[in-house]
Simulated scan of single mutants.
Amino acid sequence: MPGLETYLQEWRPEPLVETDALPAEPSRALAAVLETTAPGDELPPLWHWVHFQHWPRHGELGADGHPTHGHFLPPIPDRRRMFAGGRLTVTAPLRLGVPAERTSSLANVVVKQGRSGEMAFVTARAEYRQDGELRFVEEQDYVYRSGESSTKNPDAARPTDLPVSDAPWQQPFTGDPVRLFRFSALTANAHRIHYDAPYAREVESYPGLVVHGPLLVLLMTELARSRAPERELAGVDYRLRRPVFAGDPVLVTGSPDGDMAVRTAPDHLMATAQVTFR
């Protein structure tokens, strides 16, 4: 099969402009899923993930539930995607009930050779505006490969206890199928690894349902917001390092300097984030 560069050398999608009325209902639903207080007039950082949703027609989804085509989906055969991380820089929060505009563009595409083969690293950039004013800038990093990874092990050992940490901020969490299903619905994510356990195990070789990367990131930023309510989040730089599975107990940790993490026993870093405050 040709290398990934062959499929990507002519792929340069044009910027895409979208709008959203920012109704309050999706944020209220997300607050229920996260078991926290619904926002007032301003949208907390990263809560825009339940807005600007795209719902492809059912026939446009692949066997894995993911869209077969998309404006920023690279034309790679038998495409597999992993959300690797991202960055958010906040100038001002979005206000609920006020129409907002998102301008998305392709920021970077790089093909690298990994232990399990070629991978394409794609960064998408989005600028969010209200009343013509820039509110925040977001970049998201995705890793794509052609075909399934040979490094997955559906029989891998799973954590059963929480790790021990001396972090000043701590919050235990265990993902369950119901919460994952509700988060999938809120974020228009039909990927079957998050709700179809037989598919996740038998087709994608995961040991269980995969907890959404964005959910792990929100757990970290929400811990920071709850423990430092007098401080305003100005940005976050996050990295998803290893998948977390439904039923795995994790410990979300953090500190006033904004160093956040999701950990499993005995001491594995599953996700990290650096939160900055104003």
Rank of each mutant, 00 (worst) to 15 (best):
D131Q: 10
T123L: 00
A157W: 05
S104F: 01
R115A: 15
G132I: 03
F121R: 01
D161C: 08
F173P: 02
K152S: 03
V111G: 01
A156P: 00
V109Q: 08
S149T: 13
M119S: 06
Q171D: 12
A167I: 11
D166T: 15
D166A: 15
Q130A: 04
N108F: 01
Q140C: 04
Q171F: 10
G147L: 13
V122Y: 00
Q170M: 12
D131S: 10
Y128D: 02
R158I: 06
Q113H: 14
A107W: 01
D166C: 12
S150N: 07
S146Q: 05
D166I: 13
V110W: 04
A157F: 01
R115W: 04
E118A: 15
E138N: 02
D141H: 06
V109C: 12
R102N: 09
G114C: 09
G175M: 07
S165E: 12
N108K: 11
D131H: 09
P154M: 09
R125M: 07
R145W: 01
D155C: 05
A156W: 03
Q140D: 03
G117K: 11
R158E: 03
Y128A: 02
A126C: 12
D141K: 06
R179V: 09
S105A: 15
R125N: 07
P172H: 14
G114D: 08
T174C: 15
N108R: 14
E133T: 12
S149H: 00
L106S: 01
F136S: 05
G114N: 09
G147T: 13
K112Y: 06
R145C: 02
R179P: 00
P159H: 08
Q130D: 03
L106W: 01
S146G: 03
A120L: 07
S105K: 05
T174D: 12
G147Q: 13
Q171P: 02
L134M: 10
R102W: 08
E127V: 11
D176T: 11
Q170H: 09
V110F: 06
E101N: 06
P163Q: 05
E101G: 01
L162T: 07
Y142T: 00
E138I: 02
D166S: 15
V109T: 14
R179H: 09
E118R: 10
E127Q: 15
T174S: 15
S105Q: 13
W169L: 10
A120M: 08
A157P: 00
Y142M: 02
T123F: 00
A120W: 02
K112S: 08
G114S: 08
G132Y: 03
Q130P: 01
E127P: 06
F173C: 07
E127C: 11
